[in-house]
Amino acid sequence: MKHFEKPVAWVVGGSKGLGVMVVKGLAEDGYRIAINYRQSRTAAQKLGMEIENRGGEVLVIQGDVSQVADVRRMTKEIEATWGRIDALVCAAGPFIFKRTPLTDFTDDEWQEMIAGNLSGVFYLIREVIPMMRKQGGGRVITFGFPEAESIRAWSGYGSYAVAKTGLVSLTKTLAAEEIHHHITVNMVNPGDIRDPFKEATIKEARNRKDPRTPAGRPGTGEDVARIVRFLLHPDSDFITGAVIPVTGGFVNE
Rank of each mutant, 00 (worst) to 15 (best):
H3M: 13
F4G: 02
K6G: 03
V8T: 08
G14N: 06
S15Y: 00
V20T: 07
M21H: 01
V22Y: 01
V22N: 03
G30Y: 12
Y31F: 15
Y31P: 02
R32V: 03
Q39D: 14
S40I: 08
Q45D: 12
E52V: 13
G55Q: 10
D64K: 04
S66F: 10
Q67C: 03
V71N: 00
R72N: 07
M74N: 11
T75R: 04
A80V: 04
C90G: 02
F95Y: 15
F95H: 11
K98V: 10
L102R: 00
D104C: 09
D104F: 08
D104E: 15
D107E: 14
W110S: 08
Q111L: 14
S119F: 03
V121Q: 06
L124A: 11
R126A: 13
V128P: 05
R133N: 07
E147W: 00
E149D: 15
S155A: 09
S155Y: 09
S159A: 15
Y160V: 01
A163W: 05
G166M: 08
K172C: 08
L174V: 15
E177D: 14
E178M: 15
H180S: 12
H181T: 00
V185E: 06
N186S: 11
M187V: 08
N189H: 06
D192E: 12
D192Q: 09
I193Q: 09
T201M: 07
E204S: 12
K209L: 14
D210C: 15
P211C: 05
P211L: 04
T213W: 07
P218F: 01
P218W: 01
T220L: 09
E222M: 09
D223Q: 03
D237P: 02
A242C: 08
G249F: 03
F250Q: 05
V251A: 09
V251W: 12
E253W: 11
